[in-house]
Design a binder for these strands. Structure first.
Lengths: 397, 397
DNA sequence: GGCTTTTGTTCACGGCTAGAGCATAAACTG
DNA sequence: CAGTTTATGCTCTAGCCGTGAACAAAAGCC
């Protein structure tokens, strides 16, 4: 990832490696385990941990369980350490959470909304700004997930809500940290890669089923973003042979045939506009036939993507979990005949997400920490920390 | 890419960085330029270059052109330095080449073949073994490109030649270095990323048109390989709405409608089996209508992939170059209406390859150097070099 | 021919990690 | 309960690395 060239960068690099390790394991590994896993000398680990504790990045607590020797410590988030703010904006409501290093999250706010850009983003911006004022320098970033493609770091389109190039950072207002805006599917995939069923998987495919279908490839733990940031749109490939025009502007999109919009259409109910979640759940629970149609379309598309990308695992989140449970056989029956012969021998596992509906939020949090856990940002935290301590009335030494 | 943790690894890391820089620029940059580009102190560069020259990895020659000050040197491949062997196996012939650090290649052998696994691989293995004996320790690897999917590092399927899980390393025989076996499209994409039109491109899409169609995504300079190594198969997604069974075992593959097989079928001629290259070229030159059908299918598929992956550039190699030149408008006309509205504003450039038909060979070479230019392998070369020098009768010093 | 400019070389210096030796704090043993 | 065992944390030295400054070298420029 990094080209450490000087010994100073080496130190910064090892500091980040240690923080990453603590974060990725959810602050569960002991210091001695970390020392071994990162192949550090005990002395080096000592210096590193002491430095990170000094900088209010880590805080050690005694380990709960002991083996024989001297008890070891467990490095975890510092009580004044960095926080990520994360938001999941769904079609009908949003949730704001704060997350510590290690991934512990606490919901700060949860509100329904009217679906208009202003109705969503202005109250959200105010809520974020208020929490940021309260939490001060600890907030190292903001991640926001949306159910639509995101271009150039902040322009969001949600076709069926009528959002066209909505400038999210601008509408959130100036009192908000520069946000990492992302697609919910891509964030869910990131979460799955870090804390779910795609951990340690080289090539995985993640599909998120809600009102419509999003999908993205996860390579080496990272969802593929696309040039302008708007990758993660497998839903807009014509994989099921349909020719219906899609609200996205293309023709015959896979997304037209999978998701609650498709469910509602199948039983002849009104759909679109981010409405009808409750109704759709009723259909999902009762209409065998509508569920089967959804599962068939899902299976056909998965076959195409498996042919092209050869993933090791396919994970489903959102309603995908239920589709798999309710109509797994139908799904596989639609998938298998459309696989290349060479894929049929070892088809990928198709699994439900480990994170359920929380993936997008967790992924938004992860992406904030991904941005923060770099030598540059961590050094910057260190430097601003020094000035804080120097100017703090009752500063430590 | 790597986590250097000790100062020793730091040195190894910088040695590799320098070698990579020399290789990637084709041994054209001067030492002073490299020093600046890699942000090294002049003293460090001095030590590094001296070490690499000592190890017979680099060899400095005076720069041709001088500005004012003291003349600088140009580090290039050492006359006894590492060599990559690369092979491009087409449906009707193969070519074997040797490549120096920096990318200069020399064709060693070029032979037609009968298309059977044994008829291809046994003579090829003998040729490789002979050259390897001649070149000795300098050969650091072998890369072999095939026109079909490659699984688990060496099992090759070429449906229309009747190859099923052909074990390439075994058939090449034991006197051959462990080969990097890969798909021709993936290798062509790698070449394009390193020395062609995908240089510096974050997300690119490369499509290779020959008898059929291969395609792969290039992310951060690396073609995506898939879990078992058999990614790069965009040709086997049902993107054109057809329902013809494909020799690969799936249904309605895009690849059925693009390439010389499709051309021949369109004019009612026999096709398949890797035969008919000359005939196809005649059709390509004369039948406006067949070319247009190919271009339309190509355009439809490109639209789907652009929707899903949001690439910055789409590059075409093989016959793709001609399709674009002969029927570019038809291609775009089929592509555009199938793009998502948000993609239509800034659609990716569609360009011909900079490497023409040599991409697969160049990519095979690059992948050998990718494997070699790591701290581990370079240190190993150094160590074996020390023993070579120590035991060499007329060794230096 | 002397001056300027750029590059290569050498070396003292500070920073980093490894590893050894010692201190520490628990669990185990009888 | 006291000594032993075991694993960990801390401290210090040695060795390696890159930096940067001073110096040497080799050209072009006036």
């Amino acid at each position: 990832m990094i080209g450490a060239t000087t010994s100073g960068e080496l130190r910064a690099h090892n500091r980040v490696r240690l923080l990453r390790a603590v974060h990725d394991c959810g602050a569960t590994r002991t210091r001695s385990q970390l020392t071994r896993d990162l192949r550090l000398a005990r002395g080096t680990a000592s210096v590193l941990v002491a430095g990170l504790a000094e900088d209010e990045l880590l805080h050690e607590e005694p380990a709960r369980e002991h083996a024989r020797g001297r008890p070891t410590q467990v490095p975890g988030p510092h009580p004044r350490g960095p926080l990520a703010l994360a938001v999941d904006v769904r079609e009908d409501a949003w949730e704001l959470a704060a997350c510590e290093l290690g991934g512990r999250t606490e919901t700060l706010d949860l509100r329904p909304h009217d679906g208009t850009p202003e109705g969503v983003l202005i109250p959200l911006g105010e809520a974020v700004a208020a929490h940021r004022r309260r939490l001060g320098h600890r907030v190292v970033g903001l991640g926001v997930a949306f159910a639509g493609p995101v271009r150039h770091g902040g322009l969001v389109d949600i076709a069926h809500l009528g959002w066209r190039s909505v400038d999210v950072p601008r509408l959130l207002g100036p009192d908000v940290p520069a946000p990492v805006v992302g697609n919910d599917t891509a964030f869910a995939a990131l979460a799955e890669a870090r804390r779910g069923r795609l951990q340690g998987v080289q090539v995985g495919l993640h599909l998120h089923v809600d009102f419509d279908l999003g999908g993205v490839l996860v390579v080496d733990g990272r969802p593929l973003g696309g040039a302008s940031g708007a990758g993660a749109e497998f839903g807009h490939m014509p994989l099921t042979g349909g020719d219906r025009p899609c609200p996205c502007g293309a023709i015959g999109c896979w997304s037209m045939d999978v998701g609650t919009n498709a469910l509602l259409r199948h039983v002849g109910l009104a759909h679109g506009g981010g409405k009808g979640r409750a109704q759709a759940e009723r259909v999902l629970a009762t209409s065998e036939e509508a569920v089967a149609a959804n599962a068939r379309a899902l299976g056909r598309g998965i076959a195409a993507l498996v042919n092209a990308h050869d993933p090791e695992v396919v994970t489903l989140s959102g309603h995908g979990v239920e589709l798999r449970e309710r109509a797994g056989k139908t799904l596989l029956a639609a998938c298998e005949p459309r696989l290349m012969a060479i894929r049929r021998d070892h088809p990928p596992r198709i699994e439900g997400s480990a994170l359920g509906w929380r993936g997008a939020l967790v992924g938004a949090m992860e992406s904030v920490f991904d941005a923060f856990l770099t030598p540059e940002c961590v050094e910057m935290w260190r430097e601003t920390g020094l000035t804080r301590v120097a100017t703090r009335p009752s500063g430590r030494m």
